[in-house]
Each structure stands twice: as structure tokens, then as C-alpha cells.
């Protein structure tokens, strides 16, 4: 068994989770505040990856990023970037695919915090940003853990989108889930089993860690 696909999967999950942590939390904060029709439409679009077959999403991403498309050719001409069949393309696709896993739990937790917490902070002279970092974020810690782990684990097990946008280039886009499929396709069940066991073990350890970190939370770690 080669370890490169496992390493690639972990790298992809780490990059995706980090990017989503940075963009998903401000997005969740924005969505958790006053409702408007525009926000409903945006939230519906962000939730689409949850219900859309991964192959459909992967197909449209492939069309969007292909060198023949407007965006693909613009990226290639101006930045010499090709997102199709590249690791960078996998990261972009994973960020889109896993976005709801980061945004939904954080948005829900922020929306359930009593409004008076932020109001009390404002009356004490604290800005919205200070209030967000000192009051709101620390009080949704368990949801932040949940969102981070769900995003990481979901990206780790990604298959359809990854296959469509990245193919199965050795050492570049052939992540563990593709390696399992490839091994089964070539009747190498022993190798497929080894990859599966490693993925199972990694995911299990992550979930256990979340339960340990959130053991004092009133809610269950995955609520």
C-alpha cells in the first residue's frame, strides 16, 4: 500500500478546513444576523452541496474550471493557474462542497445565543468585532469543534467531486477514497481494505477527540 493517497487526503482535508474556518465563520455570523430574502437565497445556494449528487456538482465545477470556459481561460491567461486535474482544483472544489458543513453549525449556534449577550457587551463600550471575539465565539466553542471536525471528516471521505474535477493522477489528485475505488476496480481487495482501515481509524480518532473536548457541553458534540 502506498501512503501518498492517505497523505494527499489529509493535506486536502487540512487545507479545506483551514480555508473554510477563515471564510465560513464570518459568513455564518453574517447569515445569523437579521433575515432578508437575499440571505435566504444565498443560504439555499450554500446548502445545495448537501443535497446535490456530488457527481452533478463535480460536473459543473469541471465545466466552470475547464480551460475552455470563461473563468478557466481567464485564470490560465492571467495567473497561469489550471484548476482541472490539479491539487489546487481539488481544494477549491472541496471548499465549495464542504461549505455547508462549516457554516450551518456555526450559524445555528450564533443564532441561538441570547441577543442580550452581545447587547450587554455593546453597552460596555465594546465594538462588534471585540464582542464577536470575546463573547460570541468563545460561547459557541463546541459548535466550532463540531463544524471543524465535520468539515475535515467530510472532505477526507470525498469521492464524486474529487473524481470529476481531479481524476486520479498519482501523487497529485489520487486521494485515499479514489485509491480505494481504483484498487477495487483492479481486484486488489487487500489494498482497498488497508486504505479503508486507515481512513476508518483516522475518522474514528477525530470523532473521539471531539467527544472528549465537548464532554462538558450541554449539547452532544454532533448536535
Amino acid at each position: 500500500m502506498e501512503w501518498t493517497p492517505i497523505w494527499l487526503s489529509l493535506k486536502l482535508a487540512a487545507c479545506t478546513t483551514l480555508i473554510l474556518f477563515l471564510i465560513g465563520i464570518p459568513l455564518a455570523y453574517w447569515l445569523s444576523r437579521r433575515h432578508s430574502l437575499a440571505k435566504v437565497v444565498i443560504e439555499a445556494m450554500l446548502t445545495m452541496p448537501l443535497v446535490l449528487p456530488p457527481s452533478v456538482l463535480g460536473f459543473y465545477l469541471l465545466l466552470t474550471f475547464s480551460p475552455n470556459s470563461l473563468l478557466g481561460s481567464w485564470l490560465h491567461t492571467h495567473f497561469n493557474i489550471s484548476l482541472v486535474f490539479s491539487f489546487e482544483g481539488l481544494v477549491v472544489a472541496s471548499v465549495i462542497y464542504s461549505l455547508p458543513f462549516m457554516v450551518s453549525p456555526v450559524k445555528s449556534a450564533l443564532a441561538h445565543l441570547p441577543v442580550s449577550l452581545a447587547e450587554a457587551s455593546y453597552t460596555m463600550g465594546k465594538s462588534k468585532l471585540e464582542t464577536f471575539y470575546s463573547i460570541q465565539l468563545p460561547n459557541i466553542k463546541s459548535s466550532l469543534w463540531t463544524a471543524t471536525v465535520l468539515t475535515f471528516a467530510h472532505t477526507l471521505g470525498e469521492f464524486g467531486v474529487v473524481l470529476m474535477i481531479g481524476g486520479k493522477l498519482d501523487g497529485v489528485t489520487k486521494v485515499a477514497s479514489i485509491a480505494i475505488y481504483d484498487a477495487v476496480d483492479n481486484n486488489q481487495y487487500h489494498e482497498a481494505n488497508l486504505y479503508s482501515l486507515v481512513l476508518f481509524a483516522i475518522t474514528f480518532v477525530i470523532v473521539i477527540l471531539v467527544f472528549i473536548f465537548n464532554r462538558n457541553s450541554a449539547r452532544g458534540p454532533l448536535e
Binding site: P114, S116, N139
Partner: peptide
Amino acid sequence: WKPQQRRVGFVFQDYALFPN
């Protein structure tokens, strides 16, 4: 004026204490 500028001490009905 924003609430931050008014220096109003507010004791809320639900106390609004910070759990952290």
C-alpha cells in the same frame, strides 16, 4: 449615539452574563 458611546449600565432581565 451608538450604545458604546452612551455609558449606560444595563442590567438585563435574563442578566446576560457571559458563560465563558
